[in-house]
């Protein structure tokens, strides 16, 4: 669970959509979506190159160094 030295307990950094993101506490995928204002939205999540199905958003805990992609459908040809 990331660096575990005093004062930084639980703190960790992930990469979300290509940008570094520091989290104060360990989060599940569902909690991350909540934090980003995406709870209940039609999005899809990939973690370290693997799809995280909606049914596992709650049970999947993020770990330090995770690379997350959250995507939506947009206009395109």
């Amino acid at each position: 669970m990331g660096d575990n030295f005093p004062g930084k307990i639980g703190r960790m950094e992930i990469t979300l959509n290509g940008q570094a993101l520091a989290l104060d506490e360990p989060l599940s995928v569902a909690a991350l979506l909540e934090r980003q204002g995406l709870a209940g939205k039609r999005v899809a999540v990939e973690r370290n190159g693997e799809i995280v199905p909606k049914s596992r958003h709650v049970s999947t805990q993020l770990e330090a160094g995770d690379r997350l992609e959250i995507v939506v459908a947009v206009g395109g040809g």
């Binding site: 959509n17 959250i70 995507v71 939506v72 459908a73 947009v74 395109g76």
Partner: peptide, 8 residues
């Protein structure tokens, strides 16, 4: 449709 990163 296209698939794109959510606009943070």
């Amino acid at each position: 449709v296209a698939i794109r990163r959510t606009n943070i």
